[in-house]
């Protein structure tokens, strides 16, 4: 069985003045269906670039990205939009709900772009909101909800389209520790129900929620394996930490 997500020597270079920034430098990994993977790294490590490529918001400069066996790099903007719509569910740090739409309408947005007819769309959005426990807030506007509730709406929105991959970009970045745990618990639930979850974070304590950690530094993979192995949470290029963990 081929992997759901497969990076083959993916590179992403940016031209910054005279220098070339290697945001992703020959990154290779595979993520199987049903996995819960955290991509970890400090800012500038290339994790956002990774997330953009996985999320089909961006295409690699070189190398191949296969999503469900399809080479994404060769697709047009319209095809990429369709893949985002059908295959991916996004959860953002800033929730990114549309402020002028109600909670229910927000969850319906991806289904609307998928061309799902109105009654079915409504039903699926209701079901998704039921899952995140917000069935009572359908008519509320996003700004009437707490941060945790808004993030749950965005989880419902990601779920509604029944995507192959749920892509969470720093989902707890704007939340306090209690609601963070709530949201992470929800991601774990989704995983246990068979969803593939990819979590992007800079925070080791968040990353260990996942089964597996892919650690990036300077655009390269420095660790890929069990989230609970001691070396998973070590910054490899940081001599201070390395010495500290050795002692």
């Amino acid at each position: 069985m081929s992997a759901l997500i497969e990076f083959q020597k993916v590179c992403k270079y940016y031209q910054m003045g005279d220098t070339v920034v290697k945001a992703a430098d020959h990154i290779s990994f595979q993520i199987q269906k049903g996995e819960f993977v955290a991509i970890v790294g400090k800012s500038g490590s290339g994790k956002s670039t990774c997330m953009n490529i996985i999320g089909c918001l961006d295409v690699p400069t070189s190398g191949t990205y296969l999503l469900g066996g399809n080479d994404v790099g060769s697709l047009s903007k319209n095809d990429l939009a369709e893949i985002r719509n059908k295959m991916l569910g996004f959860i953002f740090q800033q929730y990114n709900l549309l402020p002028k739409l109600t909670v229910l309408e927000n969850v319906e947005v991806p289904l609307m772009y998928a061309g799902v007819p109105k009654p079915e769309r409504r039903q699926r959005a209701l079901d998704a909101l039921e899952v995140v426990g917000l069935a009572s807030k359908l008519k509320n506007m996003p700004n009437q909800l707490s941060g945790g509730q808004q993030q749950r709406v965005s989880i419902a929105r990601a779920l509604a389209g029944n995507p192959a991959v749920i892509l969470a970009d720093e989902p707890t970045g704007a939340l306090d520790s209690r609601t963070s745990r709530e949201v992470l618990g929800m991601l774990q639930n989704l995983h246990s129900q068979g969803h593939t979850v990819v979590l992007i974070t800079h925070d080791n304590s968040i990353a260990v929620t996942a089964q597996r950690i892919i650690r990036l530094e300077d655009g390269q993979v420095v660790y890929d394996g069990d989230a609970h192995a001691p070396e998973a949470v070590v910054s490899h290029n940081d001599p201070w930490l390395e010495r500290g963990s050795a002692s």
Binding site: N78, E82, N85, G161
Partner: peptide, 16 residues
């Protein structure tokens, strides 16, 4: 701009 970004991330095509 942000709304447009969100809509695009959620699968809105250019023509939408």
């Amino acid at each position: 701009t942000r709304e447009i970004g969100i809509r695009k991330a959620l699968g809105a095509k250019e023509r939408s």
